[in-house]
């Protein structure tokens, strides 16, 4: 439930987001320098292996974001008190997830062009990821349908839970489809890379850094959503008064 008082904060930043923000900058700076300079090129893939430091963490975040959306939606639906906070987290997470999904697909196809000579392969993982992207673009479209905040929350939570049913079916059918027709003719994205300690550490730092970016974005985004819901609410107080005064003046 929204508090009826006016918002007490004027920015979406808090102590927590500032700490997360500073940590993010530190870790990401290290990932950039280490990924581009310190780590060696791969024996087979050459310099293109560096795409991995962006691609793998963003894929991880993309999937993490959708898991967060699903869990927050489940909490919204099944918790006794339908807290809109869960809905905002779900929505913010899906928005951030779509962005990282696009980054994943773009970096993946750039890497594919360099390694396979093609931008796109009907690889099960790629195909599932593409369907996941479309599914969550649909989810965001449903959030923008007309209606009250509660309506938005319930509809989109149901859609998010249906996506949880849908994605395994899509993934399974795509894996099954490819395995019958061509057996693993393509490179496993990471299998061929011989990782030394520094490369592994950089990749791990990338995952940590991107997770921090994700947390930072979610914290801010769900707070801007709260602010805009509150703005509507305070608009409502004024509107109720105006509506009542209409009747007095009549």
């Amino acid at each position: 439930m929204l508090s009826q008082s006016a918002p007490k904060f004027s920015s979406t930043g808090t102590q927590a987001t500032r700490i997360v923000g500073v940590l993010t900058i530190v870790v990401m700076t290290w990932v950039v320098i280490s990924g581009l300079v310190f780590t060696p090129a791969d024996v087979v893939q050459g310099e293109s292996v560096r795409i991995m430091y962006v691609h793998v963490p963003s894929a991880w975040i993309a999937y993490l974001a959708f898991i967060v959306t699903a869990i927050a939606s489940a909490f919204y639906i099944f918790a006794k008190r339908h807290s809109l906070g869960f809905d905002r987290v779900a929505g913010a997470s899906a928005e951030v997830g779509v962005m990282f999904m696009v980054i994943t697909l773009v970096t993946g196809s750039l890497w594919g062009r360099l390694t396979w000579g093609e931008f796109w392969q009907w690889d099960p993982r790629l195909t599932t990821t593409a369907f996941l992207l479309v599914t969550y673009i649909g989810y965001l479209a449903v959030r923008r349908l007309d209606g009250s905040i509660e309506q938005r929350a319930r509809r989109s939570a149901v859609i998010a839970l249906l996506a949880v049913l849908e994605i395994p079916l899509v993934h399974f059918s795509v894996v099954f489809w490819r395995s019958l027709h061509q057996r693993a003719t393509i490179l496993d994205p990471n299998g061929d890379v011989k990782m030394d300690g520094l490369m592994l550490f950089t990749l791990f730092s990338g995952v940590v850094g991107f997770t921090l970016v994700f947390v930072w974005l979610i914290l801010h985004r769900q707070r801007t959503m709260l602010l805009s819901d509150l703005a509507n609410q305070s608009g409502l107080d004024a509107a109720i008064l105006a509506r009542q005064n209409e009747s007095v003046s009549n």
């Binding site: 007309d146 009250s148 509507n232 608009g235 409502l236 509107a239 109720i240 509506r243 009542q244």
Partner: peptide, 13 residues
């Protein structure tokens, strides 16, 4: 009772 329809308080108390 207040009822909000399309962000407008159609019923305002």
């Amino acid at each position: 009772v207040v009822i909000v329809y399309d962000n407008f308080p159609a019923v305002a108390g």
